[in-house]
């Protein structure tokens, strides 16, 4: 029923069979990795290690979830790590004084504001997202430098740190947080008008506009949400590490993009989704975990990561073509 509806208003929503294909090939890549590593290291296939991997994947997912929305609209957000850092720094300055409410609020606000600035430059001024967010990257990095003045802020309230390093029952809190976020985003992206709009902006902009959607507004909001989630991820990260300095967002960008793309979301927009990103985050966490367990040489880690990423995408491509051909 929704499919029939989509013919008019959501030209980019994938038909069910494509979704199944897509999910299947993703799962195959994931399963292959798990099987391979289970043979390679006796320490891999252990409950403790799986919880560990899930926890690390949760952080990656938090960072990559906002980016997924932006990428669905055929954009990119290079400022994500830097904005995460700035938000964490600002939030931390309140948190260190025990002001949890202001700390959390300010971090989210900073993230959201940076995102909105990106979004309005991109949606209303039609600046390429690559350059607008690249500029924002440097602005956020610079403001973090200025704000922190080279200091490290630490000593957050325990009640705040639960978010990153605590447990709820036997489950580490970040896993729970990521799971909740995943559910919310699955519902939003797949079952609401907002979700359909976002897919349409990336998939078929003209059709989206013709069908009367406020395309520009929601394109801007995509970056706003991305910034907001970056701010949130920053909070969870500092809750986990217990301290922050101006470099906290360094080097977070590339893995964040990698998780989204590994998850099968197309950079051309309109195709893919948040479940893919969750799987992408898992794949990334498993590769990193596997390299540590196997003791891969430091110099080769990034090369292995790069190669596995490309191989995964390549395999995925072949598998989905194969499935497509058979039916």
């Amino acid at each position: 029923m929704t499919v029939a509806n989509s013919q008019e208003t959501m030209p980019a929503k994938a038909p069910l069979s494509e979704n199944v294909t897509w999910l299947l090939s993703r799962m195959t890549a994931l399963a292959t990795l798990i099987v391979a590593l289970s043979f390679a290291s006796p320490y891999f296939f252990q409950t403790g290690n799986f919880v560990n991997i899930l926890k690390q994947a949760s952080f990656q997912f938090l960072m990559s979830s906002g980016l997924t929305i932006v990428v669905l609209t055929a954009g990119i957000d290079l400022s994500i790590g830097a904005v995460l850092g700035l938000a964490a720094c600002v939030g931390a300055s309140f948190l260190a004084n025990g002001q949890i409410f202001y700390g959390v609020g300010s971090a989210l606000l900073v993230g959201f504001t940076c995102g909105l600035v990106n979004g309005s430059l991109i949606a209303y001024l039609r600046i390429p997202s690559f350059i607008a967010t690249y500029g924002m990257l440097w602005i956020a990095v610079g403001l973090s430098f200025v704000f922190m003045d080279g200091q490290v802020i630490y000593g957050f309230p325990e009640s705040f740190r639960v978010m990153g390093s605590g447990f709820i029952g036997p489950i580490p809190t970040p896993i729970l947080i990521a799971a909740i976020l995943l559910i919310i985003m699955v519902i939003t992206l797949n079952h609401t008008k907002l979700g359909r709009t976002l897919y349409a902006i990336g998939g078929n902009r003209n059709a989206a506009r013709l069908s009367g959607m406020p395309v520009k507004f929601w394109e801007m909001m995509a970056y706003g949400i991305s910034g907001l989630l970056a701010g949130f991820a920053g909070l969870v990260i500092i809750a986990r590490t217990g301290a922050v300095d101006a470099g906290v967002g360094n080097d977070l960008l590339l893995p964040t993009i990698a998780a989204v793309v590994l998850g099968g979301t197309s950079l051309m927009g309109g195709r893919g989704g948040i479940v893919g990103t969750a799987i992408g985050a898992l794949i990334l966490a498993i590769i990193l975990n596997g390299m540590n367990l196997l003791g891969v040489d430091t110099y080769w880690q990034i090369g292995v990561l790069g190669s596995v990423t490309v191989l995964a995408v390549l395999a995925d491509d072949k598998i989905s073509k194969h499935i497509d051909m058979r039916g």
């Binding site: 590339l254 990698a258 793309v261 110099y299 790069g306 190669s307 990423t309 490309v310 995408v313 390549l314």
Partner: peptide, 20 residues
């Protein structure tokens, strides 16, 4: 394959070659 992801992969590969 998407240029972005391919070159992100070879980014790592080239870096590892250079370091080793």
């Amino acid at each position: 394959l998407q240029p972005f992801i391919v070159t992100l992969g070879t980014f790592g590969l080239a870096m590892s070659f250079a370091m080793s």
